[in-house]
Design a protein around this nucleic acid. Sequence first.
DNA 1: GTGAAAGCGCTAACAG
DNA 2: CTGTTAGCGCTTTCAC
Lengths: 333, 333
Amino acid sequence: MASKVTLADLAKLAGVSTSTASRALNNSPLIKQETREKIQELAKIHSFSLNAAASRLRLQKTNVIAVIINLDDETEQSIDDPFLLKVVSDINLAVNRQGYELLLSNSYMAGDDWHGYFISGRRADGIVVVGQGKQQHRIERAVEAGTPLVVWGDPKTACNYPIVGSDNFLGGKTATQHLLDRGARRLVFLGEPAHAELGERYRGFQAALADCASADAQLVRIDITSQAAYQQINQMLRQDGLTFDGIFACSDMVALGAMKALKERYVSVPNDVRIVGFDNIAMADISHPSLTTIAQNTKQAAELLVAKLLAQLAGEQPSSEQVAIALMQRQSS
Amino acid sequence: MASKVTLADLAKLAGVSTSTASRALNNSPLIKQETREKIQELAKIHSFSLNAAASRLRLQKTNVIAVIINLDDETEQSIDDPFLLKVVSDINLAVNRQGYELLLSNSYMAGDDWHGYFISGRRADGIVVVGQGKQQHRIERAVEAGTPLVVWGDPKTACNYPIVGSDNFLGGKTATQHLLDRGARRLVFLGEPAHAELGERYRGFQAALADCASADAQLVRIDITSQAAYQQINQMLRQDGLTFDGIFACSDMVALGAMKALKERYVSVPNDVRIVGFDNIAMADISHPSLTTIAQNTKQAAELLVAKLLAQLAGEQPSSEQVAIALMQRQSS
DNA sequence: GTGAAAGCGCTAACAG
DNA sequence: CTGTTAGCGCTTTCAC
């Protein structure tokens, strides 16, 4: 069983004071190398660990970063989207690499007063919000209260907190240009432009089309889930037949849902319809045909998010930043 | 900015002692209803939150549960597997519902001494381990040290800590029986039976085959990733042609990888090869053909995991438990 | 019903 | 280089 060893016990065992023991464990250069090693050795033997609650209280610092998954509702982009896992898991790694721990949260737990709950409540030193959501008031409120906070979202959004995310405009434009280059002329944007990041992708879509007089476009608004995409495309085909020859889907999950509907109705991808997604999830590579998509550099973004959060903790005011996107050309286009 | 309000400040504002303020905020019945409301009101106005570090120190309780993703190596089942996200996210919900918070961890951060780091270190009250891994010594060590701990894994494993998971044996048997029922006779098990859960699925596979004299089976060991499955099936087809007519894949990701290889070589699914996966990830429904699979009830399992962990915190000794599986019949079989 | 006071285990002045 | 000491902010026993 857990013998409840405290720093005081350990100090006594080592024949030193608690201050010496504390410093030794924190590798303070004030302590002689030899003493340090002896105490650390002793700590290992007695499997002693510093009481984090006590040192957090004392230091007024938790070494914890809270990550809030900020989805709009249940129906929106689902927590099942593998892309979210990728983002969270990359943030986790980045956080750990800086010696912090990751408290995983959602709006359910944190309520509306993020500053009060996490910061005043000394549960975390700062917050990473994944997803801007459609209403940003919770974020703004937290920032106004002085919360160190960064957001994964669309970096072009004007605001007083740093946002890190992909160049969604360029991503949308690149994807669309690619569809045009491949010969598609009647394009569909499948998604929901009201969502900040997707809005930028849609603007990119429009920008690419503006240069091409012979092409036409339609916006098809759907919930950003593969289910919704499947049903929507299915219904469109049934009702109006094939009225398009290219789809830019706002996410890979959406693209894959659309692709399923097409294949079921014997529409050939890429011959009849070319399709491009966004995110480069693992499935994009393994679907058949494999899915052309815009890759987001989540690893780099995660590092940036954490770096900017730590910069805030150090009193700086880091700015928003875009990470590069890359077209992954595969079979679907 | 964050005005640093403490309980003492709040008490002064309310004209009461800190003890009264503390009790009021914790809804102690000792305090008059009226006083309670007044103080809670005041707390809201000044957006006061109890300092969690301080109360954790005082109470010797964190109200935090650590979740450790326990993958074997980098190469094994990838952190990208959407099934893992589902599990973690369901655990997160279950944890929150019990008023606990979720500290997301991995072997990197926790090191080898989980008890020391999390429990003695007062970072969490208990641990949920996701995945047994191939070596269980870290888990056992933690349990011996007295860590409240539960594992998502194969509940049939004999051990002195509770494991919650699906009935993998029945899952494997059901999947295989289904393949046989659909007429497949030359079956492949695609996966790695050394892994506890997968071993049970393999035993189920063998059990179903034992009842069917006309069928034969081969075990194809691979890393449990879609990539590995794709490459393996590809190579088998190239080298030996089509030597099988049914695949039981140990996970949906593996199944989807195999399916891609089959389709690329114009092997029809389900006509030439019938295929069944395991997990019922979102993609199973949206792939084309959609994937027949064994659904795991992650929601129920998550509730059980957390309930059993809390039971341990209350001094009980809960036992392992299986959750039911369900065959989801779709197009791939 | 409420208050006074002790102490959870740690860290960092300050003093040697 | 090391020790003494004073809290960090909260909860709870004990007293009233």
